[in-house]
């Protein structure tokens, strides 16, 4: 038993700093919004053109003109700002967004990421993922350590078509926290009840264990 999806999100929330502008992708990354630490003020960016994304509307107050990038009905907050899609990716490209959290199918030990296409299956498109990974300075991937077949998603080289190259800074999985370093995946924290042997067995890419390895604090 490793971390639950909620615990992965909770761990990533510790990366938030006061004043951060943050873009959260669909899936586990969205859950990070539920664990913003007390005393930390962050602004959530939605790439369809909103800074200051609020919670879902109360029932009956949904507005078709106000959605997030996952096409869900949402709300604005005091201090929110609306803009067009070019400005939205402009602020991402210009490095104004401090942290991007997204899901992935595969991450390589050099920071390559694949998360948009499985060959010979229906291709839905990359949406904004390629723009985000090409531009953001701090990209954290939230995902399960292995795929449903039990194969490692932390690889020496991605097997799926790439979304971006050498861009991921950190990966948080159900087994632990891994920084991308020149030596490969550096395991800096492990899930409390997961052994180093298990992490080694389930990581296909180059792996180093931090000297000061500690359990993930939940």
């Amino acid at each position: 038993m490793g971390l639950t999806k909620e615990q992965i999100a909770q761990r990533i929330s510790k990366e938030l700093k006061d004043g951060y502008y943050v873009n959260l992708g669909i899936g586990i990354p969205t859950l990070v919004a539920n664990y913003i630490p007390e005393g930390i003020n962050v602004v959530l960016q939605s790439e369809n053109g909103l800074l200051g994304m609020g919670p879902f509307p109360e029932e009956g107050k949904e507005d078709a003109d106000l959605i997030n990038a996952g096409k869900q009905t949402i709300t604005t907050l005091p201090g929110s700002a609306i803009f067009d899609s070019a400005m939205s990716f402009g602020m991402i490209r210009a490095g104004k967004v401090h942290l991007t959290v997204l899901g992935a199918m595969e991450v390589a030990d050099n920071g390559d990421i694949a998360n948009w296409k499985i060959p010979n299956k229906m291709v839905k498109g990359m949406g904004g993922a390629m723009d985000l990974v090409a531009a953001a300075k701090n990209i954290i991937v939230a995902m399960q350590h292995t795929n449903p077949k039990g194969e490692s998603k932390l690889l020496a080289q991605c097997s799926l078509p790439l979304t971006g190259i050498k861009c991921v800074t950190k990966v948080v999985t159900d087994l632990g926290v891994f920084e991308i370093t020149p030596e490969g995946f550096k395991c800096v924290e492990h899930a409390p009840d997961v052994s180093i042997e298990e992490i080694k067995a389930k990581t296909a890419g180059r792996l180093v264990i931090a000297q000061d390895l500690k359990p993930v604090a939940i």
Partner: peptide
């Protein structure tokens, strides 16, 4: 609306 999401 494509994804109607609400809270109580």
């Amino acid at each position: 609306i494509e994804q109607r999401t609400v809270r109580k």
